[in-house]
Amino acid sequence: MSDQIILRVATKIIVPTILLFALYVQFHGDFGPGGGFQAGVIAAAAFVLYALVFGLRRTHRVLPTWVVRTCASAGVLLYGGVGLATMIGGAEFLNYNVLAHDPEHGQHYGILLVELGVMITVFGVMVTIFYFFAARGREDL
């Protein structure tokens, strides 16, 4: 499939746009529709599109399996870490009020960090699922 010039050029233009849109959905999530889960899925879709056009081998070179697995666990670590930080701050698990001097700012930082964790985990898990299905029955990958 890598000889298809139209698909290749279109993918090269679309993939950065999709990643940018994923970040927009992520960081605009507290003002409009969106959030961590949707952003993670959109970012994973960019890599699925890349793999469909350029092949799994090149995608593995861009995004190796160990990076994806690290993402899947790092997001959970960030989520739990925010919860632990609030407990160290003297409040309940995931009570964001103690994250900053002003409780309102604390809420803001807290939701931003937790959503970032959700995005990283969802991205990692989605790409991992795609890698497993795409590499099924192929010994060379």
């Binding site: 298809q4 139209i6 698909l7 279109a10 233009i13 679309i14 746009t17």
Partner: peptide, 12 residues
């Protein structure tokens, strides 16, 4: 985005 992506998908 639509005028860019949908002709490409039809072509593909």
């Amino acid at each position: 985005f639509l005028w860019f992506s949908s002709p490409v998908s039809t072509y593909a």
